[in-house]
């Protein structure tokens, strides 16, 4: 009879607190991840929106190519017009 009471006391005073402590730790860890995941999701969405201007790079690429072509034409003309440097 005494052993049964001792077993009850162990259940109530030792096992139950330990179970609650461990499960509460797991729950707090899980809930702390939720806001971080929300922030990551928001950052990914904003990052995706920032990249909406990427297609403009195609325009930049075309303009750079045209500009370099014009510079090459001018350079060729200057090469013909101006005398080369002569070492003194």
């Amino acid at each position: 009879m005494i052993l049964e009471w001792i077993g009850d006391a162990i259940l109530l005073l030792v096992v139950l607190p330990i179970v609650i402590y461990l499960l509460r730790g797991v729950l707090s860890a899980a809930t702390s991840i939720v806001p971080s995941v929300g922030a990551i999701s928001g950052a990914a969405t904003q990052g995706s929106a920032d990249l909406d201007a990427v297609p403009l790079l195609l325009t930049t690429q075309e303009r750079v190519s045209q500009t370099i072509g014009v510079v090459a034409d001018y350079g060729g003309s200057l090469d013909v017009i101006l005398d080369d440097h002569q070492e003194a």
Binding site: V34, V37, G38, I40, A43, T45, G47
Partner: peptide, 13 residues
């Protein structure tokens, strides 16, 4: 659910 949204955004990036 949050990771699903994040994965969708990363895929778009």
């Amino acid at each position: 659910s949050g990771l699903d949204d994040a994965i969708a955004g990363v895929v778009q990036i």
